[in-house]
Design a protein around this nucleic acid. Structure first.
Lengths: 127, 127
DNA sequence: ATTTGATTACGAAACAATTCGTAGATAAAG
DNA sequence: CTTTATCTACGAATTGTTTCGTAATCAAAT
């Protein structure tokens, strides 16, 4: 499976990756119980998704005991970067600034967040 | 077609919407010639996509002459906002700040862009 | 009038993503 | 040992997206 594809997980795959990125090692049941909070799907659906992700190389698993243990194989930051770049291109005509302003405009960001972004930008422009 | 769905166009639909947002009124051929620069697909593919977008209510058209003239029906900013919010949620665990930093980190933004964002942030925090 | 070229309409194939039912394996409990 | 619960494997149905071929329509050019 080509490495480039691994940076573009589907929506369902992303939900699972988020969990794996945060938790580290998980069984299918671990993942499924977290997923269930926000959506309803059967256990075997989650299982199947994770099996497909294994085929795609998005995750790896330890199958030495009966209950397999999964972990993310793709890098969180790289994946995020790729998706954000794609959105800038695809939705904002290549303008990162426009996306940022759109993101920060609508009460999505708290004062604290905005302050930390300012600090971050100061660091950037001093380079 | 429910209004909520109109905010989540597919990737191909977004490519077309971008063109319509920028150009205003377009024929299928107008759109197709611009699309062709970046991807190759047949003319009838573009036509079909735009017909489907019509059904979904993403675009409207003037069919009074033989060559129909299309325009976007969905609002650019609302659509962008929806997609960006979704990405913040889906990819960055709800943190707008994390997404912004990721977006601005990797040479995606020029100095000018960063400056204009700073000004924008100053405006925000003075409210 | 006829031909030529561009257009729309439409069906269907190809592909991908999601969902779930069922069967078989394994381990734990009785 | 048998039952019960949990797990994996797998096939298949469903749904959505993208692609394109073909036919019908229309207008302009010859």
């Amino acid at each position: 499976m080509a490495a480039i594809n691994n940076l573009k997980p589907t929506e369902s795959e992303l939900e699972i990756l988020q969990i794996l990125w945060e938790k580290g090692n998980c069984t299918v049941r671990d993942v499924h119980e977290i997923l269930e909070k926000n959506k309803d799907a059967g256990y075997t659906t989650t299982l199947k998704l994770m099996q497909i992700m294994l085929e795609k190389g998005l995750v790896a698993r330890d199958a030495s005991s009966k209950t397999h243990i999964y972990r993310a194989l793709v890098n969180q930051e790289k994946t995020q970067q790729h998706l954000v770049d794609k959105m800038i291109d695809n939705v904002f005509n290549g303008s990162a600034a426009r996306m940022v302003m759109q993101a920060l405009g609508n009460h999505t960001a708290s004062k604290e967040e905005i302050d930390s972004i300012k600090k971050y930008l100061d660091g950037l422009s001093n380079q």
